[in-house]
Simulated scan of single mutants.
Amino acid sequence: MADMLRLERRDCHGDLSLNLPELSISLRKNTGIGMVQKSQPVSDDQVIAFNKEASFSLPLQSCRVVKDEQGGEICSISPTMWFVQTDYEKINSYIQQINTLGHDRSIIATNMSDQIVCLEVSGTRAIEFFSKGCSLDFRKNTFPVGHSARSLLGQANVVFNHIDVNKYHLLLDISLLDYLWKWMRETSLEFTFG
Rank of each mutant, 00 (worst) to 15 (best):
F56P: 08
D173L: 06
Y179C: 10
G102P: 04
L16V: 04
P144R: 15
Q70L: 05
Q46K: 13
P79G: 10
C12T: 15
V42Y: 01
S122Q: 11
S76H: 14
K67P: 04
G123F: 08
Q97R: 10
W183E: 04
Q115F: 15
K29A: 04
Q40I: 09
W183L: 05
Q37H: 13
T86S: 03
F143I: 15
L172P: 01
V66E: 02
E120F: 01
F130M: 05
G154M: 09
F50K: 09
K132R: 13
V36E: 02
L58H: 11
S175V: 08
I48P: 00
I174D: 11
F160M: 06
R64W: 04
S148L: 02
E190Q: 15
D45P: 00
I77M: 02
A149G: 07
S39G: 14
N30Y: 03
D164N: 09
E69D: 14
I25V: 10
G32Q: 11
E190P: 13
S26Y: 07
V36Y: 04
E53F: 02
R139H: 11
F138W: 01
W82Q: 03
N51S: 05
N92C: 08
P59S: 05
M112F: 13
C118R: 04
S39A: 12
L18M: 06
I25T: 03
T110C: 11
I127A: 12
T110L: 14
I77L: 05
E53P: 01
R139T: 15
T80G: 06
W181G: 08
Q61F: 05
P21A: 09
K67A: 01
I77C: 05
S55Q: 09
H169M: 06
G14A: 12
L58T: 05
R185N: 14
Y88F: 11
D104Y: 11
D87P: 14
Q37M: 14
P79W: 08
L5W: 06
Y94R: 10
N19Y: 03
I107S: 04
R6T: 04
S113G: 01
T187W: 04
A49E: 14
T187I: 15
S26R: 14
G14M: 10
Q37A: 14
K52F: 05
I98Q: 06
L153A: 04
F83N: 07
V117A: 03
N30H: 11
T142S: 14
L189T: 11
R64V: 00
D114N: 15
H13A: 09
L189E: 13
M35R: 09
M1H: 02
K132C: 14
T142P: 02
S131D: 08
A156Q: 13
F56M: 06
L119P: 12
A149V: 00
Y168D: 01
Q37R: 15
G71R: 12
R28F: 08
T80V: 10
N99S: 06
I25G: 03
G72M: 05
E89H: 15
P79H: 12
W82K: 14
L171A: 00
D44S: 13
R150Y: 07
D3E: 10
F160T: 07
C12M: 01
D44M: 11
S62D: 03
S43D: 02
E120H: 01
L60M: 08
I127P: 12
C63Q: 15
E8D: 07
G154T: 00
R185P: 06
L101H: 04
N157Q: 12
S175I: 06
C118T: 11
N166D: 01
L189Q: 14
S43I: 00
S151A: 13
G133R: 13
G194L: 10
A149P: 03
